[in-house]
Design a binder for these strands. Structure first.
Length: 616
RNA sequence: GGUCCCGUAGCUCAAUGGAUAGAGCACCUGCCUUCUAAGCAGGUGGUUGCAGGUUCGACCCCUGCCGGGAUCACCA
């Protein structure tokens, strides 16, 4: 904020003037004053005492006097234990407020000419979205909004893992046992239907494995391969993947199906397209409910062969080397990593080959000089390697790549496990939060006069506000415990608490409209109440909060800010009267202040992907 | 075992190296005749995993331990 720079420069000038000390202005620490002291901004004078060779309170008093005289926005100061607290003039705060109100883009930055891609969600097409995808989507969406707000052009991209063994399992199970069921005939949402066949496949496979374990062949394998003293059940648990690849009839069928798919067999491709189309329709519905969207879709089936030219390139540049068997590697041991295959001996791509290829392709085609990959932290190593390799290849965009790594979402009972059926389904969860919101609303009664459509819309906003805030308030890199009961709380540190402060403001604004209140005399109101000053200071901090959240790819900063702003507003609401204020200037000022808070809350919540209802 | 991440109130989470480590939930106590009480005010609750170090000042930076997690495939 410009005021901070002004103060920094003035302090530097004071140091020069009194002590002949040269200090770069940006090294001067200016903090916001904590609530229990008088003042708006605080200069920490400890770093200067050695240079000035005077006691902290003397230095503070001298600099304070200098600032008060030379900087007209500094109205007063006090020094406590080496902290120089500065009070800005009421004129400054008044003009700040009116500037905020005339600037609908307050807190946002102008176009900086960069184009950034934010890649998020990356679902597999063999089952529906779950709680983990929700955290991913909310982070990706909010992050993309933050990047836009800080002046970037953003491309939202989704990579869809639409090929491979997983979807073939669903396809095979549907073919064998589905009897032609469709989403229409079964009344089941497409992604859930396909997911059911995936589960069915896994169950059938489990049965087959159990039966196989009783055969002589299995006994022979156990005798030959088990470690000494290894009990049978432990051995067969470990052996499962080997069995599936070598002995399983279903396994063989799936692999044959995958081969047919890769060969472009028309029937297989048609089946694949049919099931995937059901899944996409299901995903679209879930994304719509979550309020997230994409500008660009990448299908793994289009990109999985990509990246071979970059391997050639890397060989030429001696970044990669070829082993005798023909496989291509990169040696990162000098950077504390391992050697890594980038191309198999048979010439086919591996996971990282694709990512190398798509990174270059995106830069070439879309000019994205920054890419944010929103991917869970289990892939930290993969991205460290990927970025390092691209750097060594001298790719021009290599420094603009960022892995927004987020921690796993766990339940109070522990990790979600597919096998134990503890995975929280995204659609179920959304339905559940809406149900609870409906229950609470009927007790509350505030929505009773709305039309049924408006009621539904409001309930959706409240419910999703609760769910989204609950997830987004946590620092992304931390693992989070998701307690379903707490996620639907509407009181306390929650989305609805913030929405409610916005709703209160909406109510005021409607009344302003109706009663045609004159807001002009606000400027003559100068004797701010504590609650008012607190709000002004909070509003003042908004642009920096947006900047920090964007720079750190961390929406939780903004979530916490929004909560604190809402909290200050609730206190203000309680402490002072707005419409019943005793003088017209106070009334006008409080209405302007409320309007400003409403504007910033709406802006901030929008960056988090949360809507504020008209009433609740 | 190597590398990386996390350990803060009973629980879920905050705290650009700055002042007495803060919120919410839960548990108590108050506040609707006044702009929506989905709100406000107060109380209880802490050796910031442990031990050193750097600094005028450390939850934050450094070192070593302890605990939890992730990852180290010609899988994705």
């Amino acid at each position: 904020m410009a005021i901070i720079e002004t103060l920094q420069k003035a302090v530097a000038a004071a140091l020069q003037h009194y002590y002949g000390v040269e200090m770069p202005a940006e090294q001067v620490q200016v903090n916001t004053t904590s609530a229990e002291f008088t003042g708006d901004y605080t200069v920490v004078v400890f770093p200067f005492v050695k240079l000035a060779k005077k006691a902290p309170d003397v230095v503070g008093a001298e600099i304070g006097a200098f600032l008060k005289e030379k900087v007209d926005t500094v109205q007063d100061f006090n020094v406590i234990k080496g902290f120089l607290n500065l009070e800005l003039s009421t004129e400054y705060w008044q003009s700040f407020l009116s500037e905020l109100l005339t600037n609908p883009d307050f807190g946002k930055q102008p176009d900086n000419g960069h184009r950034v891609m934010v890649e998020y969600s990356s679902p597999n097409t063999n089952k529906p979205l779950h709680l983990g995808h929700i955290r991913n989507c909310l982070l990706g969406w909010s992050c993309s909004k933050l990047l836009e707000a800080t002046g970037n052009q953003v491309v939202r991209a989704q990579v869809i893992n639409d090929r491979g063994v997983a979807i073939c399992k669903s396809m095979l199970a549907w073919q064998k046992f589905g009897e032609g069921a469709t989403p229409e005939s079964s009344g089941i949402k497409g992604d859930h239907l396909v997911g059911e066949y995936y589960v069915l496949f896994e169950n059938k496979s489990k049965e087959e494995y159990a039966a196989w374990q009783k055969t002589d062949a299995a006994r022979a394998v156990y005798q030959a391969k088990a470690k000494p003293d290894q009990p049978e059940d432990a051995f067969f648990k470990d052996f499962k993947n080997n069995w599936f690849n070598q002995y399983s009839a279903l396994g063989t069928e799936v692999r044959e199906m995958l081969l047919r798919w890769e060969a472009g067999d028309p029937d297989t491709v048609a089946l694949w397209k049919k099931l995937n189309s059901w899944v996409y329709a299901g995903f679209d519905e879930t994304y719509a409910k979550l309020g997230v969207a994409f500008d660009k879709l990448y299908y793994e089936s289009d990109t999985y062969l990509l990246g071979k030219d970059i391997v050639e390139d890397g060989l030429k540049k001696k970044v990669f080397f070829r082993k005798d068997d023909g496989s291509v590697w990169v040696d990162l041991t000098d950077a504390g990593m391992d050697q890594k295959v980038v191309l198999r001996a048979d010439g086919t791509s591996v996971y990282i080959t694709q990512d190398l290829g798509t990174a270059r392709k995106r830069y070439d085609e879309l000019g994205c000089d920054r890419v944010v990959y929103v991917v869970a932290d289990e892939q930290n190593y993969h991205f460290t390697v990927l970025f390092e390799v691209l750097k060594r290849l001298g790719e021009p965009y290599a420094d603009g790549l960022h892995h927004l790594s987020y921690g796993l979402v766990e339940l109070p009972t522990g990790r979600m496990k597919t096998r134990e059926g503890t995975v929280v389904d995204a659609d179920d969860l959304i339905e559940e939060v809406i149900r609870v919101a409906r229950e609470q609303a009927s007790e509350h009664g505030a929505l009773d006069t709305l039309s049924p459509e408006e009621q539904e819309d409001t309930l959706r906003k409240i419910a999703l506000g609760a769910l989204k805030f609950f997830i987004i308030k946590v620092n992304p890199k931390k693992r989070m415990i998701f307690n379903p009961e707490e996620s639907v709380d509407l009181q306390g540190q929650t989305g609805p608490y913030i929405q409610y402060s916005g709703v209160r403001i909406n109510g005021l604004m409607q009344r302003v409209e109706k009663e045609k209140v004159d807001l002009a005399p606000a400027g003559s109101y100068t004797n701010f109440e504590d609650a008012e000053k607190e709000l002004l200071k909070a509003l003042h901090a908004y642009p920096d909060t947006v900047k920090t959240a964007a720079a750190e790819y961390d929406p939780s900063h903004l979530a916490n800010y929004s909560y604190n702003l809402a909290k200050s507003y609730h206190r203000f609401w309680h402490d002072v009267s707005v419409f019943n204020a005793d003088d017209p200037a106070a009334k006008a000022f409080r209405l302007q202040l409320s309007k400003a808070v409403g504007q910033v809350l709406a802006s901030g919540m929008d960056l988090l992907g949360i809507e504020i209802p008209q009433r609740m």
